[in-house]
Simulated scan of single mutants.
Amino acid sequence: MVEIEKLADVCKLLGDKMRLTILSLLKERELCVCEIVEIMNTSQPNVSQHMRKLKDGGLVKEAKKGQWVYYSLNIDDKPYLHVLFQYLLSQKEKVDIISCEQLDCCD
């Protein structure tokens, strides 16, 4: 059973449109911060602030490759989120047209 306090914290994180959109993007595949910036059409500091909150909340994990940070979902231990993710609209089209190679940002 999920503790009420932990679930409330997760719900707060999901209550932000930008963070929920980022999670739906990560549902498709691991993304570099530069890819998220491009897809969301926002600044790197703005994305980093949201990613920090998602990471602190245990919803994403990060992997550093050089100076760049790649993010992926971390919800395997949160089965209650799997149901929600079934209802998130696919962001596959947005994710498929963006790549680090295309953006020439992560080399």
Rank of each mutant, 00 (worst) to 15 (best):
E101P: 00
K27R: 08
V33W: 04
Q91H: 06
K12L: 15
L54A: 04
C105I: 03
L89F: 07
S72F: 01
L73I: 03
L14M: 13
L13Y: 06
E30S: 15
M18I: 08
S72T: 11
D76T: 11
D76K: 11
M1N: 13
L23F: 07
L73A: 06
L25M: 11
F85S: 14
C105E: 00
L25D: 00
L13V: 11
K78A: 01
Q102N: 14
C34A: 10
D56V: 12
P45I: 02
V10W: 12
I36G: 00
D9H: 13
S43T: 15
Y71K: 03
D76V: 09
D9R: 13
Q91V: 03
K92Y: 14
V2R: 15
C100G: 07
K53G: 06
M40Q: 07
K61N: 10
G15R: 08
I36D: 02
D104P: 00
Q67D: 09
L103N: 04
I97F: 11
E35K: 05
L54H: 04
Y70P: 04
S48D: 05
L59I: 04
L14Y: 05
K94E: 15
L84N: 07
L103H: 04
Q67Y: 10
F85K: 13
N74C: 02
L59D: 05
K78I: 08
C106N: 00
L25V: 01
S72E: 08
R29W: 13
S72N: 07
K64R: 11
Q49D: 07
C100E: 01
K92Q: 15
L54M: 08
E5L: 15
S48L: 09
Q86E: 14
R19M: 12
Q91S: 12
L26E: 09
D76N: 15
D104T: 07
E28V: 15
V95M: 10
S24C: 08
K12T: 10
N74L: 02
L89N: 14
D77K: 10
G66N: 03
D76F: 06
